[in-house]
């Protein structure tokens, strides 16, 4: 059974992803709230640091990723709460949908959501912090994609766990934040390099770290997620 039908696995992922995106679209009020939350976080950093544009510009990459990380905790928490409200996760498992397909679709959905959020935050960040983008948009897009994927894979596994536990709102960040530190580090560094230029050619090694992180956690999530939602 395992791995016998890769086509049908992909098809299931597509159907589930379409379902999640449709739900996301129909409840866009929540999506809007999330966007404004992230924007407000970005704005608050400038108040916390003070109006010194130089400091803001130098640390812009870090602030962007912190705003994305905080927003991701909310988004990830929501992604399984939706399923719980109507017990749809049980329905999906009875369907029967492959649990690995559920993981892939959820993680891809969360990554897409975060990438959308990143795409909206970057122009605001450029305006707000007065940064100049030294390198092209291509490397910016690559950084955002890799970073968002790195947050969403372990985040999906952990939010599936935390959504069923007591004190889930505390548990998810508690579990996720220490885990995500390498990815956060790499993404923030890569973003700074993209913004300020990369004279030492360090960008490649941070990309390498992000790619490795993604491979490991997408693989682990794919393997372990079925055990998380089994009954």
């Amino acid at each position: 059974m395992r791995g016998a039908r890769p086509i049908s696995l992909l098809k299931t992922v597509g159907v589930l992803l379409a379902k999640d995106l449709l739900i996301e679209w129909r409840t866009r009020a929540r999506l809007n709230a999330l966007i404004f939350f992230a924007l407000a976080t970005l704005l608050l950093f400038s108040f916390a640091v003070g109006p010194d544009t130089k400091v803001l510009a130098r640390n812009a990459g870090g602030y962007l990723w912190l705003a994305l990380l905080f927003a991701s905790v909310l988004a990830l928490g929501e992604s399984f709460r939706v399923e719980q409200e109507n017990l749809t996760l049980d329905g999906l498992r009875l369907a029967p949908a492959d649990a690995r397909a559920i993981f892939l679709s959820k993680a891809m959905g969360n990554a897409l959501l975060l990438m959308l959020l990143g795409a909206l935050l970057i122009p605001v960040m450029v305006a707000l912090y007065g940064v100049t983008v030294t390198m092209g948009l291509g490397s910016f897009a690559a950084t955002v994609t890799l970073g968002c994927m790195a947050i969403s894979a372990p985040g999906t596994v952990y939010s599936a766990i935390a959504s069923n536990a007591r004190a889930r709102d505390v548990l998810l960040p508690l579990l996720l934040f220490p885990l995500i530190i390498p990815a956060l580090l790499a993404a923030a560094k890569a973003t700074s390099l993209v913004l300020q230029g990369d004279p030492m050619n360090q960008l490649g090694s941070w990309y390498g770290l992000l790619i490795g992180f993604n491979l490991i956690y997408w693989g682990l999530g794919f393997l372990l997620f079925p055990r998380v939602i089994e009954d």
């Binding site: 956690y217 682990l220 055990r227 998380v228």
Partner: peptide, 10 residues
Amino acid sequence: VWSSVVGIIS
């Protein structure tokens, strides 16, 4: 089960 998953990932 969950703590095993979290333990492996950690």
